[in-house]
Each structure stands twice: as C-alpha cells, then as structure tokens.
Write a protein that binds this DNA or RNA. Structure first.
Length: 493
DNA sequence: CTGGGGAAGGGGCCC
DNA sequence: TGGGCCCCTTCCCCA
C-alpha cells in the first residue's frame, strides 16, 4: 500500500502496512540474530527468537516466560524433544511471518506441536486443512484422478500456505496467491490437486499407523468398525456441545466459552480477512472452535476412527504444562487434540476421546441403547430394567422386597409400595421374562425390540424379584449382532 | 410455561 | 492401564 501525502493524514489514522512491516523487521532481526533473547533447543537444533514475540504467540511460552522473566536477564533456553526441528521451523516461520506452510506430511505434527504450544490459530487452521482435505478426498477424488498426467507433473509439489489475518493483505515475497474459495478452473488446479494428494497422504499415514499398531498388537485386538448409533441426538452437535460444556465448566483448563467469544468477536470484525483458502473446495474462512469440532467430528473418515485408534495413532506430543504455583513443580497434562480439555492421565484422555468419536461399545441388551462406558450401561440397566432403586416411584418412600413390588411398563421397571400399588389400581402382577431366553437385538437401535412386544402379551405371574433381568455385557466388536457374549452377570443387585 | 425429578453423560480419582 | 465409584452438569419428561 502506497503511503499517501502527509496532508491526507488524520489523527488516529491506521497505516495498514505498519503491522506487516513491523513483523518483517522482527523476522529480519531473528534471521540476523539481533536482540534474540530466547534460545529454543529442538532435538539438538537451536532456534533463536524474541521472548516478547513468543510470549505473544504461544500460551505455552507465555506461561514459561512469565516464570523465567522474573528472575533472569540471561537468554531463556527452552528445550523440546517432543517435535521435530522441521515442525518447529514451520511454527516459528508462522509466528514471524503469519504464513503457515502446511502439507499433508506435516499437518499432523504441526497440529500436535501447536496443541502442545497452545497456539489456537494454528490448531484451527490444521483442523480446517484436514477437514477440507477429507472433503476433497471424497468429492473430488474421481475428478482429480482424471486430471492429465501432464498438468500434475508440471506443477511442483508445493505446500499449501495459510496466511494469518495479520498478513492476509500483502506479502510481496510470495509470488503466487492462495486461490480464493471460488472454484476458478485451472488457476486452482495445483492447489486442489495438492489438497487431494495431501488427503491421500493423511489417509495413507493413518493406514500405516493403524497397520503398524495392528502388527504390534497382534491378533489380540480386533479391528473394530465404527458403531452405528441409534440415538441420533447424541451424535454430532449434542455430543460436542456436551463435551464443550463440560470443558467450559472445568476450571482446570481454558474456558471454552471465553475462547468462543473471542473467536466470535474476531469473526464479526474481519470475517473476510482470514486466509483460510484451501483449494477448490469452498471452505469457510473462519470457523469457531465449536463448528470446527462438529464439522470435523462429522466427517465419515473421522467417525470411522474409534477412540482407541485415534489414541494410538496420535502423536505422543499431546502433553501440556498445567499452570503451577510458584515453587511447585509443573505438572504434565494430556490435551485433547479436538477440544481444549486436558486430563491428568493418558487413560482418561482415551476415555474422553470417545465423546468425540461417538463410539458406544456397550449396548443394552434390553432396550438397545448404547453407552460409552460399562458403568453407564450398568447404571442404566439397574435403574431402568432392574428396578434397582428400592424406592417407591410414587410416594418416594423406601421399600423392601416385602413392602413393595416391581411394576413393569414396557421395558421399564420400577418399584411401588403395596399401598401405592393398590391406589394405582394395578390389577396384574408385573410381567417378567427370563433374559436368558431372549436375545434382544441391540445394534439396530430399535426402541421397542421384538421381545418387548412379545413380553407385553405374556401374562406371567412371576415377580421380578424371583426372576430378574440379566445384564449381558457385550462389548461390541465389528457390529456382529450374534457375537458371543463376553460376560454374563447374573444379577447386579 | 415452568419447576422438579429422573436419566444420561462426562470428569476426577482411587484401587 | 482398566475398572469402578463418586460427583456434578445437562437434558428431557411430566405434572
């Protein structure tokens, strides 16, 4: 942008080139090792940078430097062994230029490193990159496979570049422009094709990782397919919302609400200014974290992964330092790559991942409802199908097996005291059935299984106490309905 | 429309 | 590391 004559200046006028110029100057200083006061050691390779720049760019460095800056005027030294120098180079270049060089090869590592360093912008760009790559993979696979070999071979394999909003308007050193979201024919060919290639690389890498893991784990673990869910409301939005709300309510980590508010505010200011342009696929330029998580979670490729697979195929660099009090040792926490939630233990992260994958391995044999945890299934079974609570549903008083009995309504069972039972004018003793004789189909999600209908027509005089439901715990593998039961628990009470 | 209660879901943490 | 328990929050149904 050309500078206007001074007579045009007004008080408070913003010179838009100033920010980019300032960043360029800082980048030059970094390259010439001028005023660098922080050394970052990544797998033996030293990167020099400015503390204030790192502080402003990364939550991790903010925390780190806010501690070290109190006591020393010596250069700060940060050491990382959890990501490669190449990955950190990409991130550092972004910090100093606003340009993120993403490829199918590096996006996973960059995303993980960004997660580690708590750089939300990069994280979101990586998510968008992956999502759009997956979209392109499905929608344009055939199209780009039919591209002439010539057009593919003449275009060099260049990384897809993402520009931060700060640098979106001008970057003279980059001669080509990132294609706009409007499909524009040949202009987009290389980037779209590279996106397709990127998606292929991502998928190949995922497959490689999975097969490696498969070899490692041998035949002890079966490859599990994604479960078809019957409770649609628990998928996607609602599920994510829950996770987010839980995340936001947890004071131990970054508030999702604040984060979203921040994003929304930025959204309102310069919605069109974020260079999330990615190939021919029309990708929204600015996504809130919620949208990204929901959209990403809805992609078929993502949904096919189960928590365990995600967990084992993810890079190990998911750790994040929790905040610590002065004098305390920093504690390592494990950060979910799909939301802001952090946990203390890896096992808890694995469990948490199920709320992103939608995996529900524990179906209720009685009603078909699926659960993410065995204990949830047990609780459900006890309260719904076993009338496990010794409380009269009507008068809420405690009942024993002598002072009350079990009433069945459909698949539900509950207890009534004899008095309430008489008042409710139940003229028949609750029906019952022997669970061992029934094989309720759980994977269809049918709310009223066949046995339930049959059961309602039966007129059995037995009470539930004498012959209760059995809980059949079936950890679903490969959605095989008739798979042998893993465990049979006769009675939970 | 609203409030209460039950059910479900998720996190922390112990064993 | 997995299972299990406890607690809390949210959602949904019903009076």
């Amino acid at each position: 942008m050309a500078c206007k004559p001074s007579s045009y200046f007004q008080p408070g006028m913003e010179i838009s080139s100033h920010q980019s110029h300032l960043l360029e100057q800082l980048n030059e200083q970094r390259k010439q090792d001028l005023f660098c006061d922080c050394n970052i050691l990544v797998e033996g390779k030293v990167f020099k940078a400015h503390r204030n720049v790192l502080f402003a760019s990364s939550g991790y460095f903010k925390m780190l430097l806010s501690q070290s800056s109190k006591e020393t005027s010596q250069p700060t030294i940060a050491t990382f062994e959890v990501f490669s120098p190449e990955t950190f180079m990409v991130i550092l270049d972004f910090v100093y230029s606003g340009i993120l060089s993403l490829t199918g090869q590096n996006v996973i590592e960059v995303m993980s490193a960004a997660s580690y360093l708590q750089m939300t912008d990069i994280l979101n760009v990586c998510k968008t990159f992956i999502k759009s790559s997956l979209d392109i993979n499905e929608k344009e696979k055939d199209h780009y496979l039919s591209l002439s070999a010539k057009s593919a071979s003449t275009e060099p394999a260049r990384p897809t570049l993402y520009r931060s909003r700060r640098k979106a308007k001008s970057n003279p050193r980059r001669s080509y422009s990132i294609p706009d979201e409007k499909p524009n024919g040949n202009e987009n060919s290389w980037s779209s094709y590279s996106s397709y290639l990127s998606s292929q690389v991502i998928l190949q890498r995922a497959e490689t990782q999975l097969s490696k893991r498969g070899r490692k784990q041998g035949s002890t673990r079966k490859r599990r397919k994604h479960l078809g869910l019957s409770q649609s409301r628990e998928l996607g939005g609602c599920k994510s919302d829950r996770a987010e709300r839980a995340g936001a309510s947890d004071s131990g980590h970054i508030s999702r609400g604040e984060e979203e508010a921040e994003f929304d505010a930025e959204n309102a200011v310069d919605r069109d200014d974020y260079g999330y342009h990615h190939g021919a696929e029309a990708v929204p330029k600015r996504w809130s974290v919620t949208q990204l998580e929901q959209e990403l979670s809805r992609t078929p490729e993502f949904m096919e992964l189960k928590a365990e697979e995600l967990y084992t195929s993810m890079p190990t660099i998911l750790g994040v330092m929790s905040s610590w009090n002065e004098g305390d040792l920093p504690r390592m926490r494990f950060k979910c790559p799909f939301c802001t939630h952090t946990v203390k233990r890896r096992a808890d992260l694995k469990r948490h991942l199920r709320c992103h994958t939608g995996e529900r391995p524990y179906p209720c044999e009685a009603c078909g409802k699926r659960f993410t945890r065995l204990e949830h299934l047990r609780n459900h079974f006890q309260t719904i199908h076993q009338a496990g609570k010794l409380i009269c549903r009507k008068c809420k008083r405690h009942v024993t097996e002598l002072t009350g009995c079990v009433v069945q309504q459909g698949t539900r069972r509950y207890r009534l005291c004899h008095k309430c039972l008489a008042e409710a004018n139940f003229d028949s003793i609750p029906e019952d059935f022997d669970a061992s004789e029934h094989s309720p189909v759980s994977s269809t999600g049918n709310k009223r299984p066949k046995w339930a209908l049959e059961e309602e027509q039966k007129s059995d005089e037995e009470t539930m106490e004498e012959e209760p439901y059995n809980l059949v715990v079936r950890h679903n593998n490969d959605d095989i309905p008739d798979e042998a039961e893993e465990k049979v628990k006769p009675n939970l009470r």
